[in-house]
C-alpha cells in the first residue's frame, strides 16, 4: 500500500530546510565547541600547548585539590541561595501582579519589572558595590540613623554581597515564569475551592500552589543554571572569598593558559548543574504533568 501522501513529506523537508540556517549555526558554533571542551578536559596540559593524551588528571585536580573544590562548592552554595532567595522573593510579586492588579495594568507592571534587567549589568553590579560598601548607602544610612556606630563590614566582598547582587540580577527571570503559570489558572477553580469549604489560605495551598508549580520549577531552573557560571558579580563584589567557578575558569584560560584544566572545571560545573537540575525535575515531576 502506498501510504506516503503526494505533496506530504514536503512538510517535513520544508521545515528542515527552513530551520537549517539557525540549526547549522548552533551546531557549528555551539554543539561542536561544547564537544571540543569536553574532549579537551581529557587531554594533558603541556606548557603553551595541549598534548593529545588521554588523562583524568584534570578531573582529579578539579575534585581533589581543595583550592578548586572549595570554589566549586561555594559556587553551588551561592547558586542554591540565590535561587531560593530569588524565587521566594519573586513569588508574592508574581502573585500580586496576576491576582491583584487590574488586567489593563498588568503589562505596565511587567514592563516595570523587566526594565532594570535590560540596563547595563556591569554598572548595576558596580552600584551594588556602592550600596553595600564601607562608605556605602546602607552603612551611611544606618550610621546617620544611629542604628550602628561603625560601618558594617560583612556586607561587601563575601558570599553575602554575591547573593544579594545575583538575586537582584535574576529577579525578572524568576517573576515571569511564575506569573505566566499563575495567569493560566482558571479563576473559577479558586472559587470552587472555597465553595467546597476551604479557607482562602487552604485554597491557595491546595489549588493555587500546585497549579503554579510548573512556573516555579521553570524559574528555579532559569535562575539556578546561569547563576553558577556568573563571572562579573563575584569578580566585582565577591572579593577573594566570594570567587566562583567562572573566575576560576577565566583564570585557567586567560591567565594560566591551562585549557585542559579550565575545560575540566567548566565541564564539571555543567555536569553538576545538569545533574542537580535533573534531580530537581524528577522530584517535581508530578506537578509538571499539566493537562494541555
Amino acid at each position: 500500500m502506498k501510504r506516503s501522501a503526494r505533496g506530504a513529506g514536503t512538510e517535513a523537508s520544508s521545515g528542515l530546510l527552513l530551520v537549517s540556517p539557525p540549526a547549522i549555526y548552533a551546531l557549528v558554533l555551539l554543539a561542536a565547541p561544547l564537544a571540543t571542551i569536553i574532549l579537551y578536559s581529557f587531554f594533558t596540559d603541556g606548557y603553551l600547548e595541549v598534548i593529545r593524551e588521554f588523562t583524568l588528571a584534570n578531573y582529579w585536580e578539579t575534585w581533589v585539590n581543595p583550592l578548586y573544590r572549595t570554589v566549586m562548592l561555594r559556587s553551588l552554595l551561592v547558586s542554591v541561595l540565590v535561587t531560593a532567595a530569588t524565587v521566594l522573593l519573586a513569588f508574592p510579586v508574581a502573585y500580586f501582579v496576576s491576582f491583584h492588579v487590574d488586567p489593563s495594568r498588568k503589562s505596565l507592571w511587567l514592563f516595570l519589572i523587566t526594565i532594570p534587567f535590560w540596563t547595563s549589568y556591569l554598572i548595576r553590579v558596580f552600584l551594588w558595590k556602592v550600596i553595600l560598601g564601607y562608605n556605602g548607602v546602607v552603612n551611611s544610612g544606618l550610621l546617620s540613623l544611629g542604628i550602628i556606630d561603625e560601618p558594617l563590614t560583612f556586607l561587601l566582598y563575601n558570599t553575602n554581597s554575591v547573593v544579594i547582587t545575583l538575586a537582584h540580577a535574576y529577579a525578572p527571570f524568576a517573576i515571569l515564569p511564575i506569573f505566566v503559570a499563575l495567569e493560566k489558572i482558571d479563576r473559577s477553580l479558586l472559587e470552587a475551592g472555597q465553595d467546597l469549604g476551604e479557607t482562602k489560605f487552604a485554597t491557595f495551598c491546595r489549588v493555587t500552589l500546585p497549579l503554579a508549580m510548573p512556573g516555579v520549577v521553570a524559574s528555579v531552573l532559569i535562575v539556578f543554571i546561569p547563576t553558577i557560571g556568573d563571572y562579573v558579580t563575584p569578580q566585582l563584589v565577591g572579593g577573594p572569598e566570594g570567587r566562583m567557578v567562572a573566575n576560576l575558569i577565566q583564570l585557567q584560560y586567560l591567565r594560566l593558559d591551562n585549557y585542559p584544566l579550565g575545560s575540566a572545571i567548566a565541564v564539571s560545573a555543567m555536569g553538576i548543574v545538569a545533574i542537580i537540575s535533573l534531580i530537581f525535575l524528577g522530584l517535581t515531576r508530578r506537578y509538571l504533568r499539566a493537562p494541555k
Partner: peptide, 9 residues
C-alpha cells in the same frame, strides 16, 4: 479541492 491537502491515492 482547494489544493491545501495533497491526496494519498
Amino acid at each position: 479541492i482547494a489544493g491545501f491537502e495533497g491526496i494519498s491515492e
